[in-house]
Design a protein around this nucleic acid. Structure first.
Lengths: 148, 148
DNA sequence: TTACTACTTGGAGTGTACTCAAAGTCAAGC
DNA sequence: GCTTGACTTTGAGTACACTCCAAGTAGTAA
């Protein structure tokens, strides 16, 4: 991660710091995920370090599968400060649980893939063995469709 | 999970067994993710247990973030049988790694959320504390944008 | 025979999240 | 003064994965 300067003087720089495209930053502003950015005399956007950190936090939420609308809801609650604390808490908690379930699903799929990879390895050690997916197809004929 | 019968006599039943909608099953067939399903005399689709298991495996891959095109690529390799084994292996391995990185990202986000939740709890125990997001904003003024 | 239900097809429409293009402004360098 | 480049805006277009719809057919039930 690079050092974020105190003031960010262009959308290009903001894009570089966040990894978003300039178009995406404008798009996020347009749909209300980002607040209307302040403009310089010539109309060009500029940002504070804090705003860039805000974008980076949004990207964290996004990476967890939050939609733009969900993120907007959360940010709106944040704007309301302490009064919306309980809502913010339960929203974050629900999202935490959601991520937990996501992780569990991914891990189970990883286990399936590991099992299949192990079978592939057996196959290459002893080239006379049959289809590595048999445990999934339960001996049914492949009929033009392979289940691995 | 319910028991899958040997033959599945309608798309409706296939939809029930897989959790997909009938439209989605037809869509998958249309785009080539599923092979052209056999038809009865009246033109209605029917399936074997094996084909349903194929759909269920596809759903596993899908759940890991594979696109339809990626799944098609993999299934195509599977059709080629043993000759494409090395390609299948490395494709699965790459996908396994991909999932691993996904999991790591999600876990990091979970840790961030846990940290924030902990701060929220401190707040409600002692209502005189300030913004729970301060560790993320590094004391910058909120300027209409909250980073949590 | 009529009604109803369950399917069929091809094609159009939807939601999400961008992504691109056109036309214009502004400041700097030659 | 002219060109170049970096931005601005609005609006249209794209990619993906469905989802819906209209028109038609086949089989069953009254």
């Amino acid at each position: 991660m690079q050092e974020i300067p105190e003031i960010i003087t262009s959308i290009k720089q903001a894009a570089e710091l966040t990894g978003l495209s300039e178009d995406t930053i404008r798009y996020y502003e347009r749909v209300g995920l980002l607040p209307y950015a302040e403009r310089k005399a010539n109309g060009h956007r500029h940002y504070t370090r804090h705003q860039i950190q805000g974008i980076l936090f949004i990207l964290r939420l996004k990476a967890t599968g939050m939609t733009i609308e969900e993120m907007k809801r959360y940010l709106k609650l944040s704007e309301q400060g302490m009064t919306a604390l309980p809502q913010r808490y339960s929203l974050l908690e629900a999202h935490h649980d959601h991520i937990g379930r996501e992780i569990a699903k991914l891990q189970e799929t990883q286990r399936i893939i590991e099992y299949k990879l192990k079978n592939f390895r057996v196959l290459t050690e002893d080239p006379d063995l049959s289809d590595p997916e048999k445990h999934l197809t339960q001996g049914a004929p492949l009929s033009g469709f392979s289940t691995d």
